[in-house]
Amino acid sequence: MRSLILAATARFLLPILFMFSIFLLVRGHHLPGGGFVGGLVAAAAFVLYGIAHGVEEARALLRVNTISLLGVGLLLALASGLLPLAGGEAFMTGLWFQHPVPVLGKLGTPVIFDTGVYLVVLGATLTVLFNLVED
């Protein structure tokens, strides 16, 4: 079921969707979006690419093992929660930098946490779908 049109479209769509997913993640704290939605968009982009060009190529493009992605995401989320402990605050207290970073806006531990969520959603979804397609 390889289709030339799909293959060509996927090649264009992947970077656009991927950028969109990052955009959703970053703006999620203020407007609709966030780690869950962003992760799902990114996953959809790679799955689309995988269907068009084969999972092998999609994996190669991703470079990282999907399960590592999932693990890194979990650790990142956990770390963002543990960070305040070093400052004597309670687990998962939100810490923010005073000055906003250009483009990304204000940075703080909740943003790191949301990035962790993004990676877990991306990793888990791709683990499921890639392996199913290959099976």
């Binding site: 869950f36 799902l40 959603v121 888990a124 979804t125 499921v128 779908l129 199913l132």
Partner: peptide
């Protein structure tokens, strides 16, 4: 609901497999 939707997807995948 937001987390429920995503978890529901994970559990559905597991159930299907």
């Amino acid at each position: 609901i937001l987390t429920a939707i995503v978890i529901g997807f994970g559990v559905l995948a597991f159930a299907l497999v």
